[in-house]
């Protein structure tokens, strides 16, 4: 059972959709509220399947995200790798948390992720100017329970291990 990895395509598609949602054009007012989709999906898979999705994959995803978003190469890679590391460290406890507590934790993780990005852009000389920069943390927090339930059901349905 250990060597038998099933449902790789589910992982692939979920990450693909996360990337699509990140690039999807939103109306101006909603733009600031866009959740950090890729980070959220990564958090889920790192928690559910830490032996399959690790720091390496997170880092590669981050690199792709950098290219997609026109950011400095390595900016999101750094953030996502650290997220993956942190979530894998605590994945056993994380699984047992009630949904509300998970949401709060996800909110904090996303704040940490945004903080790293803001350091990097700050060093480049273009720090985020308004507090709206931090709103993805709130929207991610609010959407986490739904994402968690959807991904869990998909994982059980297709028996992703």
């Amino acid at each position: 059972m250990l060597n038998k990895n099933t449902g790789g395509w589910i992982l692939f598609i979920s990450l693909l959709i996360a990337f699509l949602l990140t690039a999807l054009p939103l109306p101006h007012w909603a733009d600031d509220w866009r959740p950090a989709w890729v980070a959220m999906v990564l958090i889920y898979w790192c928690m559910a399947l830490p032996e399959r999705i690790g720091i390496g994959i997170a880092w590669c995803m981050g690199l792709l995200l950098d290219v997609q978003q026109g950011a400095l190469l390595g900016q999101n890679a750094l953030g996502l790798a650290l997220i993956a590391y942190f979530v894998i460290q605590i994945h056993k406890r994380f699984r047992l948390f009630p949904l509300v507590q998970q949401s709060c934790l996800v909110g904090f993780i996303i704040i940490f992720y945004l903080l790293i990005s803001s350091w990097v852009t700050g060093i480049m000389g273009i720090p985020p100017k308004t507090w709206t920069y931090w709103m993805p943390a709130i929207s991610s927090m609010v959407l986490w329970p739904w994402l968690f339930v959807i991904l869990r059901d998909i994982r059980r349905q297709y028996n992703v291990t």
């Binding site: 720091i55 390496g56 880092w59 981050g62 400095l72 190469l73 390595g74 900016q75 790798a81 480049m124």
Partner: peptide, 18 residues
């Protein structure tokens, strides 16, 4: 300790890219 390697790689890439 892989995380340290990845952090270093990111930092180096960002510096070189910038």
């Amino acid at each position: 300790m892989r995380i340290v390697a990845f952090i270093l790689a990111s930092l180096i890439m960002m510096t070189v890219d910038h």
